[in-house]
Amino acid sequence: MFLKNAWYVACTPDEIEGRPLGRKICNESMVFFRGADGAVTALEDFCPHRGAPLSLGFMRDGQLVCGYHGLTMGVEGKCVSMPGQRVGGFPALRRFPAVERYGFVWVWPGDPAQADPAKIHHLEWAENPEWAYGGGLYHIACDYRLMIDNLMDLTHETYVHASSIGQAEIEEAAPETKLEGETVVTRRFMEGITPPPFWAAALRGNGLADNVPCDRWQICRFSAPSHVMIEVGVAHAGNGGYHADARHKASSVVVDFITPETDTSIWYFWGMARNFKPHDTELTATIREGQGKIFAEDLEMLEAQQRNLLAHSTRNLLKLNIDSGGVQSRKMLDRLIAAEQQAQAASQASGAGQPSAVAS
């Protein structure tokens, strides 16, 4: 189950440069491309002629040409031409609201009438030149909620990421979880620790000593439909920890956009935004490489977990104190999904009709 009336990251702009991109999101097969004006369009990935995926076609003069028989689609979802055939009566395809913002393409798989771009979460680091960002994309065969659980409980770092960001002090520091408005926040602070390899390298990258006691923090923030932003960092001990002056710390925001593909698979857009040495492209590449290896370890564990859960679907799982962040996030999702489904049922019962096939 997932929210339909919400903005999800669909792709990055480079994925649709000069070509269409097929991607399934929330069980909806979509094709993304740029029209003649450069704006992003998202249509259902289905040629009305013979049902071929339009994403297997190509772009010509800002229009999408089906790679099977040449049927050409415009950005409004209407067929505009086909060799030797009148097309005026062809039915329009479903068009999904799509917006390009903050270096990502966002899509709304639900009711187009509710797709307000103002609802896209503001990303300060994406617009501020004092920040740098590097990231990537993984396709992972797991329920999107398993990834939310993973990110809202970082105790697993001690074991899954033992060679990079894991250390015993993580599980020794009890997390605190609170609901702040429509955001679930889990905080964990460690004092006087030795920085693990990834953070030792980050300290060096910021011109700081990596062989002195440090304070470390992890502040995980979940917001619907499936975004997790994690403030992380280390500061030389005795300088205020999380609140230390920038001269004494290396801190970042781990960016996690989790886009459901199906009930048991996701598109995971991962990255790290940092506000130290933002113009050091070599440092950005180094951090991105290190983080990519860390998330690859999560991928292996999550896919194995999903296979186990499918094989033992009736077994009950334990809920521990460390699971509070994930539990609260799931409760929020359950509440929002139930409200959305109730509103949809009420609309259908009242005869209000269905969402238009073509977004305005």
Score class of each variant (00 low, 15 high):
Arg101Ala: 07
Glu100Phe: 09
Arg94Trp: 07
His312Trp: 07
Asp116Val: 13
Arg216Pro: 05
Leu299Ile: 12
Asp298Val: 07
Ile148His: 01
Phe46Arg: 14
Leu208Asp: 11
Arg60Met: 09
Val160Ile: 15
Ile258Gly: 00
Gln167Ala: 15
Phe257Gln: 06
Ala311Thr: 12
Ser313Thr: 11
Thr284Gln: 13
Ser324Gly: 12
Met1Ser: 15
Gly326Thr: 00
Ala201Lys: 08
Thr281Asp: 14
Gly238Asn: 09
Gly38Phe: 09
Gly84Met: 00
Ile230Val: 06
Glu15Val: 01
Pro278Val: 00
Thr259Val: 04
Thr194Leu: 10
Gln341Leu: 10
Asp298Ala: 07
Ala141Met: 12
Gly35Phe: 01
Cys11Ser: 06
Gly136Gln: 00
Cys79Gln: 02
His156Gln: 06
Val75Pro: 12
His69Ile: 11
Ile170Lys: 05
Ala338Met: 09
Ala304Arg: 11
Asp37Met: 04
Gly292His: 09
Ile337Arg: 03
Gly103Ser: 13
Ala296Leu: 13
Leu21Ile: 01
Asn128Phe: 08
Asp45Ala: 07
Ala311Tyr: 02
Val255Asp: 12
Val253Pro: 09
Trp7Phe: 02
Glu191Cys: 13
Arg19Thr: 07
Arg145Gly: 09
Asp334Lys: 03
Leu318Pro: 07
His243Tyr: 08
Ala132Thr: 13
Glu176Tyr: 12
His139Ile: 02
Ile165Lys: 03
Asp61Val: 08
Gly325Thr: 07
His243Ala: 15
Glu17Leu: 08
Ile120Val: 03
Met332Ile: 04
Trp108Gln: 04
Ile258Tyr: 01
His122Pro: 06
Gln306Met: 05
Glu300Tyr: 11
Gly18Glu: 04
Val99Gln: 00
Leu333Gly: 04
Cys79Lys: 04
Pro97Ser: 05
Ala6Arg: 03
Ala162Glu: 14
Asn150Leu: 00
Asp111Arg: 00
Gly18Thr: 10
Pro109Glu: 03
Phe269Leu: 02
Gly326Asp: 02
Arg307Cys: 14
Val232Ser: 10
Glu130His: 13
Ser55Trp: 04
Ala174Val: 14
His236Asn: 12
Leu93Met: 06
Leu146Gln: 13
Ser350Phe: 07
Lys4Arg: 15
Pro109Tyr: 03
Val234Met: 05
Asn316Arg: 10
Ile230Gly: 01
Glu289Ile: 09
Ala296Val: 11
Ser313Leu: 08
Asp111Leu: 09
